[in-house]
């Protein structure tokens, strides 16, 4: 919308984000992990490695925890590059019975 003031600034910030390849992702956490991070979060990250770094910086207690990562309901054991609006789940192991 050209008639809006500063519309070009919005365009600039948008293209900068694309250059960094960071994607907006939604995080859902379960069990002990949710106790640390809260149940829902929205973050920007390029891939699973960057996400782990970012989460551990935000929540240091997370570094000592084991959790599996699922993207759009499929577990991803290795490195994974995110797409815009991916849903990322953090699922810890439960031992109780």
């Amino acid at each position: 919308m050209c008639w809006q003031p500063f519309w070009f600034l919005q365009l600039t910030s948008c293209s900068l984000q694309l250059l960094n390849y960071t994607m907006k992702i939604t995080i859902i956490a379960f069990g002990q992990i949710a106790e640390i991070t809260g149940k829902d979060l929205t973050l920007s990250a390029a891939d699973t490695d960057a996400l782990k770094q970012q989460l551990e910086a935000m929540f240091p207690a997370l570094a000592a925890k084991k959790y599996a990562i699922a993207v759009n309901r499929q577990l991803v054991p290795g490195h994974y590059n995110f797409n815009e609006n991916d849903e990322v789940a953090l699922m810890p192991p439960y031992s109780g019975g």
């Binding site: 002990q32 925890k65 084991k66 031992s95 109780g96």
Partner: peptide, 26 residues
Amino acid sequence: RHLFPEPPAPGEAPDCNEAGVLGVLP
């Protein structure tokens, strides 16, 4: 092991004794 290749370290995942559990859950 496709989910969790190795077990968690001790204390990392608390059991029912430590963490409690709502009786209807099991």
